[in-house]
Design a protein around this nucleic acid. Structure first.
Lengths: 197, 197
DNA sequence: TTCTCCATGTAAGTAGTTACATGATTGG
DNA sequence: CCAATCATGTAACTACTTACATGGAGAA
């Protein structure tokens, strides 16, 4: 009789917020902070997106919000509902290609680096490598937090996604250093396109 | 007297188009194809973006376009101007963090996988791993084309960006298989959060 | 008192997509 | 003659960001 339950189609970011609420975040502000501390390397949400998302989650019946001022300071906290939990789990289990989007101007520039001299090309490699190194450092800095979350709350997957992030930036760093070596070798024999022209 | 030359601020995608023209692509259609064949793994442009970009490049004096119909078929081809070459090189050399943006719902879901049973979590790892494997396969398929571009036209950096792409997806695959191993080990002792609740 | 953090909200703008729209050419 | 490919263009929409806007709380 119920037939197909009309799942209100919420944006991915709304589901992210829903997930954060299920993990214990209460206000929009806390959700934003949690995202910055955890998944920001593969997903970002601005607060201008979070507050409207919370409204649509509430309209969908997935969360229940109530005002909970701190002193005179306005504040609205949310709890996940039963249907919210079900919807979130369904979303997690949903099949189909989860979109993977990478936009990296550094790599784009490197693609065109034949139009530059060797030094400038090396600089581009350097830039890509350094940026990944910084990211790895930031990810490692988060490590202890993820450790304590795993111990205190029993959530082990944040550590795993952290490892994946480190792994792929480390791969970039390693490949960049190989490339640098090769370009140096080529350079010593002096055969840069730019120099010739 | 000339003072600061007012560089019209074109979108990154316009610069990508400019670069493709410098590498010998002539029409919007060819640019689109070249992008799909080369940098699509870290940059995409829809044709709805390319044609307006070409107009702004022409307005900026960076390219010169002329109609070049094939029979009765409309077609407009572009050549890069001197100032276009200079502007493109300046863009390539421009310092400052080239934005790196990754949006990956697969990793987001994995982050929340503590809310699932072990099998479902493994499925998520599987999905991430498979997607990277497919990407690596596609990148390897492009390899021979990049090889011939390197030999025939002397452009060696397309091969290098290809390698970087393969390297980081391979890192994802490797890390995923480690994770899978660990989850299996944990599973045998039966301590999934979902099962307990 | 002043700075940083907590906390929420909106308006305007950017960047990009998909879908709509058209039509020629080539090869089977 | 039909499908795939070549070729360009626009309108509507979506998603998202930045900047504007406001103000309380706590610490130095």
């Amino acid at each position: 009789m119920t037939g197909k339950v009309k799942t209100p189609d919420l944006s991915p970011s709304a589901y992210v917020a829903l997930g954060m609420i299920q993990l214990g975040r209460r206000s929009g502000y806390e959700i934003k902070q949690a995202v910055e501390l955890s998944i920001r390397f593969f997903w970002t949400i601005s607060h201008a997106q979070i507050y409207p998302s919370l409204e649509s989650l509430e309209r969908a019946g997935f969360v229940h919000g109530r005002d909970d001022p701190r002193g005179r300071m306005v504040r609205r906290v949310y709890t996940i509902t039963k249907s919210g939990k079900a919807a979130f789990e369904a979303w997690l289990r949903e099949e189909g290609a989860a979109p993977f989007e990478l936009r990296d101007l550094g790599l784009v520039k490197l693609f065109f680096a034949d139009l530059l001299d060797r030094e400038a090309a090396l600089l581009l490699v350097e830039t890509i490598s350094r940026r990944s190194a910084e990211t790895v450092a930031q990810l490692r800095a988060i490590g202890p937090i993820a450790d304590s979350v795993a111990e205190d709350e029993g959530y082990s997957f944040p550590k795993i996604t952290l490892r994946l992030g480190i792994a792929f930036h480390q791969a970039m760093i390693d490949e960049c250093s190989k490339i640098r070596g090769e370009l140096d070798g080529r350079g010593r024999r002096g055969s840069s396109r730019k120099t010739r022209s």
